[in-house]
Computed example of a mutant assay.
Amino acid sequence: MRRTLSILIVDDHPVVREGLRTFLDLAPDVKQIWEADTGHKALDFVNQYSQQIDVILMDLVLAGEMSGIEAILQIHKVSPHIPIIVLTSYQNVERIHAAIQAGAKAYLDKSVDPDRLVATIHQVVEGKTANVMDRNLDYAGLMTPEDNIPLTSREFEVLKALGQGMSNKEIASYLGITEKTVKVHMSHIFAKFGVYDRTQALIVASRRGLINP
């Protein structure tokens, strides 16, 4: 007999959330559904109700400062036991790779058949990985990492501040430099890591042991 589930839906479109809720409410093995429309709200919810959430359905493109990938990364840090399924209409391979690297257990298109969605939810809750991209592929393949060039001390300070969740403005204030200078350091970090956004920089830094996961 399947266990009953509590699900957190993270999507910034009310129509999408309502559609998912309407369908999942009809599933006999779903007992509770929560909603969040931003990554920050999802993270706050997880911090409060970590032990009650069985699975998270996460869009990759969200309103606000925190992307879906960054939300996955942050949630996986504080509650790695909660499986996350990416449910999105975006087919960008690099984003999918980044989401899997950040901690997502499965990827599904929003056009997925409802029965398959429920089956995938149960798969990941049972500890199985469903429909993920090849983890060995280069998820940051649009750039070539400059592996032999170490970070400068200032770049490392910027990276650590980034790992603490600071915005560019907050990093500038914290380090006593201008926001423009922060952006320059950030671009150097991206080039050295072979990535093209903050979230992937954090993933690479974590994998290399430069910041705490």
Results as ranks from 00 to 15, higher is better:
residue 32 Q to T: 04
residue 179 E to N: 13
residue 32 Q to E: 15
residue 102 A to F: 01
residue 19 G to E: 00
residue 67 S to K: 03
residue 99 A to I: 04
residue 73 L to P: 06
residue 23 F to L: 11
residue 70 E to A: 09
residue 210 L to M: 15
residue 114 P to Q: 02
residue 26 L to F: 12
residue 92 N to P: 09
residue 123 Q to L: 11
residue 111 S to I: 12
residue 122 H to P: 04
residue 56 I to F: 04
residue 156 F to A: 15
residue 159 L to P: 13
residue 37 D to W: 05
residue 76 H to G: 13
residue 71 A to M: 08
residue 165 G to D: 06
residue 11 D to Y: 04
residue 132 V to L: 13
residue 203 I to T: 07
residue 2 R to L: 07
residue 33 I to A: 02
residue 177 I to V: 15
residue 95 R to I: 05
residue 48 Q to W: 02
residue 199 T to S: 14
residue 9 I to Q: 07
residue 187 S to F: 01
residue 71 A to T: 14
residue 164 Q to Y: 03
residue 68 G to K: 05
residue 99 A to T: 04
residue 109 D to E: 03
residue 192 K to T: 06
residue 30 V to Q: 05
residue 69 I to V: 04
residue 166 M to Y: 10
residue 160 K to N: 13
residue 120 T to I: 11
residue 6 S to M: 13
residue 87 L to D: 01
residue 29 D to N: 10
residue 9 I to M: 09
residue 83 P to V: 02
residue 197 D to L: 03
residue 148 N to W: 00
residue 13 H to N: 13
residue 111 S to R: 11
residue 92 N to T: 09
residue 176 G to P: 12
residue 15 V to P: 11
residue 197 D to M: 04
residue 110 K to W: 03
residue 58 M to E: 05
residue 110 K to F: 09
residue 195 V to M: 01
residue 209 G to A: 09
residue 41 K to D: 11
residue 170 E to L: 08
residue 39 G to E: 01
residue 27 A to D: 02
residue 128 K to H: 11
residue 2 R to D: 05
residue 28 P to S: 10
residue 125 V to K: 06
residue 67 S to R: 01
residue 110 K to V: 05
residue 183 K to N: 14
residue 6 S to A: 13
residue 45 F to V: 11
residue 6 S to F: 12
residue 82 I to Q: 02
residue 7 I to F: 07
residue 112 V to K: 01
residue 13 H to Q: 15
residue 106 A to K: 00
residue 99 A to Q: 09
